[in-house]
Design a protein around this nucleic acid. Structure first.
Lengths: 214, 214
DNA sequence: ATCGTCAACTCTATTTTTAGAGCAGAATAT
DNA sequence: ATATTCTGCTCTAAAAATAGAGTTGACGAT
């Protein structure tokens, strides 16, 4: 799986160079305002090479998003390893972490492009990349839900896959709404998300085992 | 003169990579003991590429020497800008600096290869590079000699070019003898050099202008 | 003496990158 | 409306790098 050949190594390195350059320029001058030519120049690469690696400009941004999601993975994992007792608090905090990670390197403008890409080219690479991105997040939720089920804090008969799809769906929808407008804060989005989460969980919450006696 | 194109830039970068790798390996494992293949691997380059840039292994070493001579140039220049009063002391100290610089990054084994290269391939690239190397050093001596002539400490009728060739010739000869054997210290070489320098200068030394009255 | 090994070096086909011309479409100016 | 410009993107020829097999000459063991 490694691809240890020199060619593969150089490919990885070049792709990183381009992504680095793009990340810097996107966050500095914005997505629309930066030209592919400029990215190529900063990455010490010919413009044609950028197209060799990333078919289109939205695609390049998409891969950038994917890289961030990967880079932020350990942080999410460590969060899930140390979950708080209360499931509602756990999920809401996880939401907050995801939102914070999303905004850490990519602007709202960038996220708009990312969200729109799957609609503009339904069967293109962008859609597939977007799907991968969602899958990554969903896995975390499944793990998170299972943990609370094992602790007896969530109804064990609920299918974690279904529940995670529900949560990811609604939060993705809200995130889309959030980035689609220039006003509105992350806190507002999270507040609205909290209402949804509480509603969804209200029916399947379980009290802690040692409670009831006082 | 710059060659600002992308191709030229990459060429420079790759050459540096290879030289860096070679420098490290030569000083760590010795010249003969390091394989071209290893250099290429460390430089993230195909072995064939090393041959594209540096026709032969001795040639690679030669270019390495040239790079060092260039890198150490500012130090020599600054020495020549702050020459001591006494010409003998100035030249001997400069000799010491050159010897110290020569041994700083390249081992005696390496210098043996370098010195021999011009004999093994008289009209090859190695000979030309060696000549360039000598020219660089000679320029410094010319400048040094002129300075002392302007200060009135050296006979002004002596041709600096001739004198510098004499000095470079004799010291190169001694340096060759030094690296050609495994025993013998730098100090011994410098001591012998000092005798030569004193002899050469004895006829053309001039007393300082303000001297004689006491 | 002969064989095997090893590393420098060569050669060729393939892959990748670059240079550079040019197209398409949107935005802007006239 | 028309022309101009700008940028994303395509296409082709030329340059360079890689993979990999092969040659040569030195050296050591048998």
């Amino acid at each position: 799986m490694a691809g240890g050949s020199l060619r593969e190594k150089h490919k990885r390195l070049r792709a990183e160079q381009v992504l680095d350059a793009a990340e810097h320029l996107f966050s500095q001058k914005g997505y629309e305002a930066t030209r592919i030519e400029t990215i190529a120049e900063k990455a010490s690469v010919a413009p044609a090479t950028v197209y060799n690696y990333f078919a289109t400009k939205p695609n390049l941004l998409m891969e950038l998003a994917l890289r961030h999601v990967h880079a932020a993975l350990p942080e999410r994992r460590s969060f899930i390893r140390n979950l708080p007792d209360d499931p509602v608090e756990g999920i809401l905090s996880f939401e907050r972490l995801l939102a914070e990670q999303a905004m850490r390197h990519l602007s709202r403008e960038c996220w708009r492009v990312i969200m729109s890409a799957q609609y503009l080219e339904p069967d293109g690479r962008a859609s597939r990349t977007g799907a991968r991105l969602n899958t990554l997040i969903k896995r975390h939720y499944i793990r998170l839900i299972r943990t609370y089920q094992q602790r007896g804090r969530l109804d064990a008969t609920v299918d974690p896959i279904v529940l995670s799809e529900l949560i990811v769906g609604i939060t993705t929808f809200q995130f889309g709404n959030f980035v689609a407008r220039t006003d509105g804060t992350v806190e507002e989005m999270l507040g609205q998300g909290a209402r949804n989460i509480r509603f969804i969980l209200s029916q399947i919450l379980r009290e802690p085992a040692g409670a009831g006696a006082a």
